[in-house]
Measured scan of single mutants.
Amino acid sequence: MAAGGDHGSPDSYRSPLASRYASPEMCFVFSDRYKFRTWRQLWLWLAEAEQTLGLPITDEQIQEMKSNLENIDFKMAAEEEKRLRHDVMAHVHTFGHCCPKAAGIIHLGATSCYVGDNTDLIILRNALDLLLPKLARVISRLADFAKERASLPTLGFTHFQPAQLTTVGKRCCLWIQDLCMDLQNLKRVRDDLRFRGVKGTTGTQASFLQLFEGDDHKVEQLDKMVTEKAGFKRAFIITGQTYTRKVDIEVLSVLASLGASVHKICTDIRLLANLKEMEEPFEKQQIGSSAMPYKRNPMRSERCCSLARHLMTLVMDPLQTASVQWFERTLDDSANRRICLAEAFLTADTILNTLQNISEGLVVYPKVIERRIRQELPFMATENIIMAMVKAGGSRQDCHEKIRVLSQQAASVVKQEGGDNDLIERIQVDAYFSPIHSQLDHLLDPSSFTGRASQQVQRFLEEEVYPLLKPYESVMKVKAELCL
């Protein structure tokens, strides 16, 4: 049975990233139509530049190519590739079939990587351009969430054990800070992308030097003109047959890092959902379990974690691919890159769409948070109580021993009897502590235990987050809708 299948058929496997999760716009960027249309555009740009620099290419040939950029006979191309065992030459023939007058000058002087690699770089750039505003929107939604809850005390956790208090907004800023680093890295790697350009079979530009009869300047002009037509500021000066596969490492490393950030955020949300302090959106008709109707599973956060793990592992592909590119190139890269580049971007696209949807509907339960604080705060307040007693004339050592005994009794009630923490009640009825009984409410005010959390939130948002989001103001209103 021949390899390949009808990918629109229910009898043929289709990647869930495309069929179930990723956005239509990201799927289109990695589609065959987008790819092969870009090949034709690159052939047109090459012909236009070659004509401008004096090669015998007519206006009629150029116009014929322009008129057929979208006229792609995919069936013919597939048949040609089956016959020739070469995808680029299959599309040269297919393009030439609908451009008979231009057929002889299509791909003039070029090698397969002229269309293959340059198209990949265009796709990487455009895919990054799709991700950047999506990530900015996630940051914006979380920034709104953090600002609104900047002063809401909550129990902090280290080692997932109760620690000092923080605020809900401050905790959210930990998430935002990681995503801001990801946004900066995505922008950097996007701006650092260079075009492969017009380089020939081993990167020496020998074929173009021959076409222009040894004119170095025209060869350099050709490279520059096509690079500018493709919208790049610069091209690699040095290439082998391909652009260095280190570029793929750079791009997928940034995406993998984004995956790590999203995994951490969504894990926190899942843990908070278990504590009943916070939940992701839950639709009115949504079913959490087929057997347990009360369940409210954090399905979206779980999906993000599941896909983020996949995204983090994909960076190993370009690392290994770059390491086995012998001399000017081997074909070890080809099949692998067809999979890992598309999957990385479709996965990143999915987790950003999902995280935006989550961040637009996060639900906080202040009463649950308050109750958990009441359970733990008495123990945390013991040092403040000791200091207040010393100020009232008591002995630190005597007070410490009193607190120690009462704390152990209260802990026994919590752990052995399943009761509430009654340390404060014990202190309130103990005559030894009568000098500070009137101060206990103040000493137990949760806001006095959150330090500068709310001020940190305000400063972080104003100095770091809002300036970073400013270039994306025009796209901030787009909502994230999930079908599944």
Rank of each mutant, 00 (worst) to 15 (best):
L444M: 12
S261E: 05
H217Y: 14
Q456W: 02
E50F: 05
I122K: 06
V29P: 02
R40V: 00
G288F: 01
E250T: 11
R149P: 01
K367W: 06
F212C: 07
P100A: 09
A235S: 11
Y21F: 14
K170S: 01
V364T: 07
D215C: 15
S112L: 01
E343H: 13
F160S: 06
Q177V: 14
M380D: 00
E417Q: 13
D248L: 06
W45H: 11
R37Q: 15
F232A: 01
L135S: 09
A47K: 01
L440N: 08
E70L: 15
I351S: 04
K284L: 12
I105T: 12
K284V: 12
C399R: 02
G361I: 01
C180V: 09
P133H: 14
R459A: 11
F160G: 06
H91T: 00
E425T: 15
K224F: 10
C180I: 15
Q458M: 11
E148K: 12
P16C: 12
R37V: 09
K284S: 08
H159Q: 03
S334G: 09
N297C: 03
K218G: 09
L193A: 10
F433P: 01
E473P: 15
N118M: 01
L331T: 03
H400Y: 06
T167P: 04
D398R: 11
K284N: 11
Q51S: 09
H400S: 02
Q458V: 13
W45E: 10
A411I: 09
P366A: 06
E417A: 08
T201Y: 01
R171N: 01
G197A: 14
D117I: 00
D420Y: 04
Q439S: 13
S323F: 02
L53C: 15
V363M: 08
L209C: 11
P10A: 14
G96A: 12
S31P: 00
Q241T: 00
D420H: 02
V414R: 04
M26W: 01
S306H: 05
V475Q: 13
R196K: 10
D11H: 15
P435V: 06
R190M: 12
V247T: 11
D192T: 14
E302P: 00
K218E: 05
H217T: 13
K134D: 15
D117C: 09
I287K: 03
L69R: 08
E473L: 14
G96K: 01
T94P: 01
K402P: 00
T227W: 07
V88E: 00
F232T: 02
L346F: 13
K391D: 02
Y472T: 07
L275C: 06
Q286H: 01
T166Y: 02
K477W: 08
G231R: 09
S407L: 14
G451W: 00
R337L: 04
M380C: 04
Y34L: 05
